[in-house]
């Protein structure tokens, strides 16, 4: 009993050390191939980066737009019930604007992209591992981090902030649409209220967060993909786990940055 517990602890420790080492290799590898490769004239695979950017950003835009619009409207409704009790309905514009920029737009876009593209990254790399494509790359002397990870990383770091900016605007539009129709607020007044409530730093904190969310989604997706062992079943398992892990890290990063930015 005792020895088996000791054995389990030892195995767990070894597994954790392996995982930490693998993550370190992934992180240093990504930065090495992102910075050293272009400097030594080895190119960056710009074409592949652009393709991935279009895939992540453009293809996710419709669903991000729809959900942002609806969330904006929901927020306006929810807050108007509460604010009406204090006779402060005009502050709906403030609430919707600040919540969208600082919190909801970055979070919502990140969670959607984790589900849509983070999972796709894991599935793609996992399937390549299963069909020996990663081995084939290695035999050809092509580094898989340079070839597969860096284009995805760059595309993700560009795509998520773009999506987040779009989500911010559309969320405010959703709040606006509901306020001027259902709540019968004056459109010009609503816009003026929004403009007076928002500062550039609200936008900036949202954007900074979204960059870190993107990094987390990409690395989690890639790491899980490389973790695939064996067959198709493992690809499915790792893909699920990729989304769950990515969302966990997104929330964690959100907490840390909100705490940091709170005083600003």
């Amino acid at each position: 009993m005792l020895t088996s517990a000791a054995g389990a602890t030892g195995r767990w420790t070894l597994k954790t050390i392996h995982a930490v080492l693998a993550v370190c290799r992934l992180v240093t590898g990504t930065f090495y191939w992102m910075i050293a490769a272009p400097l030594t004239g080895q190119g960056l695979r710009a074409r592949s980066t652009l393709d991935h950017y279009v895939d992540y950003a453009a293809r996710s835009l419709p669903v991000v737009a729809l959900i942002s619009f609806l969330i904006g409207a929901i927020m306006a409704m929810q807050s108007s019930y509460q604010l009406a009790r204090f006779g402060a309905v005009q502050f709906v514009a403030h609430l919707v604007g600040i919540a969208a920029l600082r919190e909801l737009a970055p979070l919502m876009a990140a969670i959607l992209l984790a589900g849509r593209s983070g999972s796709a990254i894991t599935a793609e790399i996992g399937a390549m591992k299963v069909s020996e494509e990663l081995d084939a790359l290695e035999v050809m002397g092509i580094n898989s981090i340079k070839f597969l990870v860096v284009p995805k990383f760059l595309a993700m770091v560009l795509a998520l902030p773009s999506l987040t900016a779009a989500a911010m605007v559309i969320m405010i539009a959703g709040g606006f649409a509901l306020s001027v129709t259902a709540l019968q607020m004056d459109p010009w007044n609503y816009l003026a209220q929004t403009a007076s409530a928002l500062h550039i730093r609200d936008f900036a904190t949202g954007m900074v967060k979204s960059v870190f969310f993107a990094v987390a989604i990409c690395w989690v997706g890639v790491y899980r993909g490389f973790q695939v062992e064996g067959g198709a079943e493992s690809v499915g398992k790792q893909t699920t786990s990729s989304v769950v892990t990515a969302i966990f890290f997104i929330i964690l990063i959100d907490l840390v940055f909100t705490a940091l930015f709170f005083s600003m």
Partner: peptide, 22 residues
Amino acid sequence: FQGSALLNSMTVLDNVALPLRE
């Protein structure tokens, strides 16, 4: 390779050209 291990995301020609490009 046993299962040929061609990269499924690119055409056959690009697969053959890949080592040369890199």
